[in-house]
Computed example of a mutant assay.
Amino acid sequence: MPPPVPVAEPRIAAWDRRVDWWLTGLAVLFLVAYAWQVLDTSLTPAARVVLEVVLTGTWVLFALDYLVRIALARHRWRFVRTHLLDLVILALPMFRQLRALRLITVVSVLNRQLRDDARGRVVFYVVGSVALIGFVASLAVLEAERYAPDSSITTFGDAVWWTMTTISTVGYGDRYPVTPEGRLVAVSLMVSGIALLGVVTASIASWFVENLRRSDAVVERELDEVSADVNRAELQLAAVLVELRAINDRLDALERSSRPS
Rank of each mutant, 00 (worst) to 15 (best):
F124D: 13
L103Q: 13
V109Y: 00
A140N: 06
E143M: 06
A131M: 13
D117L: 05
G120A: 15
V127W: 06
D117H: 15
G134Y: 08
F124H: 12
Y147Q: 14
V123T: 12
L139H: 01
V106N: 09
V122G: 01
F124T: 07
Y125F: 13
A118Y: 12
V127I: 14
L110D: 04
D150N: 15
R115C: 02
F135E: 10
V127D: 05
T105V: 10
A137C: 07
G120N: 15
A144S: 12
S108P: 01
R119L: 08
I104N: 10
V122P: 00
L101M: 11
A140H: 02
G120L: 11
V107P: 00
D150E: 15
L101Q: 10
R115S: 06
G120W: 04
A131N: 13
R119V: 11
A100N: 05
V109H: 00
L132H: 08
R102S: 05
A144R: 05
V123I: 08
L139V: 00
S108Y: 04
I133A: 07
L103N: 12
N111R: 05
V106G: 04
L142I: 09
A131V: 14
V127F: 05
A131D: 09
E145Q: 15
L132V: 05
F135H: 14
I133C: 05
E143T: 06
R119I: 11
S108K: 11
V107L: 08
T105S: 08
V126S: 09
A100W: 14
A144T: 07
R119S: 12
F124G: 07
R112F: 09
D117Q: 15
R146D: 07
L101F: 14
A100K: 03
T105Q: 07
V141A: 01
L132K: 09
I133W: 06
S151Q: 00
S152Y: 06
R115G: 02
S108E: 12
L142K: 11
A100M: 06
L139G: 01
G128W: 04
Y125C: 01
A118E: 13
I133F: 07
Y147R: 12
D117K: 13
Y147D: 15
G134N: 12
R146G: 04
E143Y: 03
L103A: 10
L101N: 08
V141G: 02
A118W: 13
G134M: 07
L110E: 06
F135R: 14
L114N: 09
L142Y: 10
S129M: 11
Q113C: 04
S138W: 02
L114W: 08
R146N: 11
G120Q: 15
L142A: 02
R112M: 11
S152R: 15
T105N: 06
G128R: 04
A131K: 12
Q113H: 10
T105I: 10
L139C: 01
A131F: 05
R121Q: 10
V123S: 07
L103E: 10
T105A: 06
L101G: 05
L114R: 11
A148W: 02
T105L: 05
G120I: 12
L142S: 04
S138M: 03
N111T: 14
A144F: 02
